[in-house]
Design a protein around this nucleic acid. Structure first.
Length: 291
DNA sequence: CAAGCGTGGCC
DNA sequence: TGGCCAAGCTT
């Protein structure tokens, strides 16, 4: 068998422990899987589940979403965070209709050309939706490989070429097995080999984990970058957009002004939202979600 | 390439 | 309590 030293154990563990997520079911369509992958970017599964259900019910095919104004996607995004992704998904739908006859493309390069689809998401859709052989390297896999292979607690802050090479070197040869392997390692990172308090007692490759064999040395080097939020433009953007999402139609400037005291920062945030295409300034001085 | 981009839950 | 973290992408 053309498998890496972990694959049998990890695949068996996945069979027994994988969560029953709707986008993993056999009947899930490539479009549904693409929606899930965009939603899951930097967002926990538990928060994605209800949003995903609502989206696939309302827009079961790319053409259904493509027929709507972008603002409807932003409104449906609700509080998932990073609302730019709603715009991206809407633009994906229109690109898929215009360039790919309404079907999610199956080639990695075509996927990569879609808005908001980067190397990870393109590989994930090609692998999970179409059974192709691509290295899956997300935050979960990076952490598992850092520990199991490299023997360090956390991967580098930014993804390195060495990590990509490592992930590729571990990829089973048969596409179907490779696809299974990719989702299995992700799941292992999500459920067992977690960032804080990993559940090593439940790990199927504990006896081969370089980090454990080295005595679980703590992370050294610079502290990992923390995200600040309170008081940032991001928080202001979030408040401004929330007002627009919750309103049935265009809102007056005064309603937006009420969400933040500091006018300079508030105006900067609003301008940025307009520049990003998330907010539409209307002729009469009111603001709306994009048409 | 490092910074910017939302939101909420957890320890 | 508050920093950390969550299936990244874009510029």
């Amino acid at each position: 068998m053309n498998e890496n030293p972990y694959s049998t154990a990890v695949l068996a563990w996945y069979e027994a422990n994988a969560r029953d997520l709707p986008w993993r079911r056999p009947e899930a369509t490539p479009w549904e899987i693409l929606i899930s992958e965009i939603m899951l970017q930097q967002t926990p599964v538990v928060r994605v589940l209800p949003a995903w259900e609502a989206w696939v019910e309302r827009w079961p095919r790319p053409a259904d979403l493509a027929a709507e104004p972008a603002g409807e996607a932003v409104r449906m995004w609700n509080r998932l965070g990073y609302p730019r992704r709603a715009l991206n998904l809407h633009a994906c739908a229109r690109a898929i209709v215009e360039r790919h006859d309404g079907r999610v493309p199956d080639s990695h390069s075509d996927l990569l050309a879609l808005p908001g689809v980067g190397p990870y998401t393109a590989a994930a859709v090609a692998s999970f939706a179409f059974g192709q052989r691509h290295a899956i390297l997300d935050t979960n896999v990076r952490r598992v490989l850092a520990r199991a292979e490299t023997g360090i607690e956390y991967p580098p802050k930014t993804q390195t070429k060495a990590e990509v090479r490592l992930a590729e070197s571990l990829l089973p040869d048969a596409p179907a097995v490779a696809a299974r392997w990719g989702v299995a390692v992700m799941e292992l990172g999500a459920l067992v080999c977690t960032a804080r308090s990993p559940k090593c007692a439940d790990c199927p490759i504990l006896d081969r984990c370089s980090w454990v064999l080295a005595g679980r040395p703590p992370h050294d080097g610079p502290p990992r970058r923390g995200q600040t939020y309170a008081g940032t433009d991001r928080q202001v953007r979030g408040r401004l957009l929330a007002v627009l999402r919750e309103a049935p139609g265009p809102v007056a400037k005064e309603a937006l002004d009420a969400v933040w005291d500091k006018s300079v920062q508030r105006e900067r945030a609003l301008d940025a939202l307009v520049a990003d295409g998330l907010v539409d300034p209307l002729e009469d001085g009111t603001y709306a979600l994009p048409g």
